[in-house]
Amino acid sequence: SDPSEDRAPESARVGNIPSSTSALKVPQLKVAESAQGPAAAHTTDTAGYNAMEESVSREKPELTASTERVNKRMSMVVSGLTPEEFMLVYKFARKHHITLTNLITEETTHVVMKTDAEFVCERTLKYFLGIAGGKWVVSYFWVTQSIKERKMLNEHDFEVRGDVVNGRNHQGPKRARESQDRKIFRGLEICCYGPFTNMPTDQLEWMVQLCGASVVKELSSFTLGTGVHPIVVVQPDAWTEDNGFHAIGQMCEAPVVTREWVLDSVALYQCQELDTYLIPQIPHSHY
């Protein structure tokens, strides 16, 4: 159930021909089969995070001529859309010479989310990475209204306002976009420790780096000194050995919190207090 199309920051360009055919990675995205229709094609874990990302398996898109002007500035990904909605975005992107990729990268400028009429969405990996990267996180209605009015409308009017977990109007995407000089995790050293489900560890690490944190791979690698705040992030329900995560405190002095601390902080683009996310640790033995 991992969102495989989000696994690594590679891009698939639509609308320009790469210098070599080997560089072309066409979105071959799968549809989750469901008797209840597209709305039930998501699996949500206890964290309220949509693990099964969206989309559609299609034939290789038709490439435009390399001489045609390509908008190098805009690059989009989509999240939560049905196959039909994805194809509408594809046509919109081609019309406006926008790069459409299946994986979010540093070059991505827009994340197009499936939302309700009030621009509230589910939480997906692309949603988190879009906010963390200060990108435009907009409703699919931006595409449909632009098509209806036959011009590209202003993104401000379609920015995602909230999500089904953290609140319907928290304005996290807007706050992140306007606060890239004040990253929420700066001054923190974060170790993403142990197993994680539904989200590859490297993507979680990239997320906290985008928010200004330094990533530490091992508990023994924390910088011990003033001005640096170490934090260990774990996902308790992913551990097979009972309560192993309670013993992390015996290996390092850092506070240990659940992954929800990261996800909530990123969604709201406000660093949350650790208290409600802390995992009790077995104290050091004193002999």
Rank of each mutant, 00 (worst) to 15 (best):
S139Y: 01
S265R: 02
H284T: 10
G187Y: 10
A32I: 14
L219R: 03
V26R: 09
N16L: 11
H229V: 04
S20L: 06
P255S: 14
Q272P: 07
N198V: 10
W136T: 06
N166L: 04
V256W: 11
E155F: 08
L29C: 10
Y193T: 05
S11D: 05
V26N: 06
D6K: 08
L125A: 08
Y90A: 08
E33Q: 05
I248P: 12
H110L: 02
E33T: 08
A176N: 02
E122L: 05
F222K: 10
R7Y: 04
S220W: 15
I279G: 03
Q36F: 07
Q36L: 03
L188A: 08
V14L: 08
E118D: 03
A65H: 13
E149V: 03
D181A: 08
K148F: 04
T276Q: 14
G212R: 04
E54Y: 12
D6N: 13
R69D: 13
P280F: 13
R168D: 11
A35Q: 06
N198S: 10
L24S: 10
K30E: 03
L188S: 05
Q28G: 07
S221K: 12
T223M: 13
I147N: 12
N243K: 15
E106G: 10
G167S: 04
G167L: 02
N16A: 07
F119A: 05
F119T: 02
G80Y: 14
H286M: 08
T82Y: 04
I98S: 07
V256G: 00
F196L: 13
E149R: 14
Q270V: 15
Y269G: 14
S66A: 05
S11K: 02
R7A: 15
I282A: 13
I147G: 11
E5N: 12
S79T: 03
Q281G: 06
V137R: 00
R168V: 10
E5T: 12
P38N: 07
H284Y: 12
P27I: 03
A132V: 01
T226L: 08
T21M: 01
A8W: 11
L100T: 07
M251L: 13
Q28M: 03
S11R: 05
V262C: 09
A267E: 02
G80V: 14
E33F: 15
T64H: 13
V262G: 02
E5Y: 10
Q281H: 06
D163P: 00
L129R: 03
K217N: 14
F86A: 06
L268C: 14
T258N: 02
A254V: 02
N198E: 15
D2T: 09
N243M: 14
E273L: 14
S34G: 06
T101Y: 05
E241L: 04
P230K: 14
P230T: 15
A8I: 07
T99P: 11
V228A: 07
T226Q: 15
T44L: 07
T43R: 03
Y287T: 09
E155Y: 12
A132K: 00
E107P: 07
E106A: 06
F128M: 01
T115L: 00
T43K: 02
Y140P: 00
N198H: 13
C271M: 02
C271K: 14
D45L: 15
T101F: 04
I98Y: 07
I147L: 06
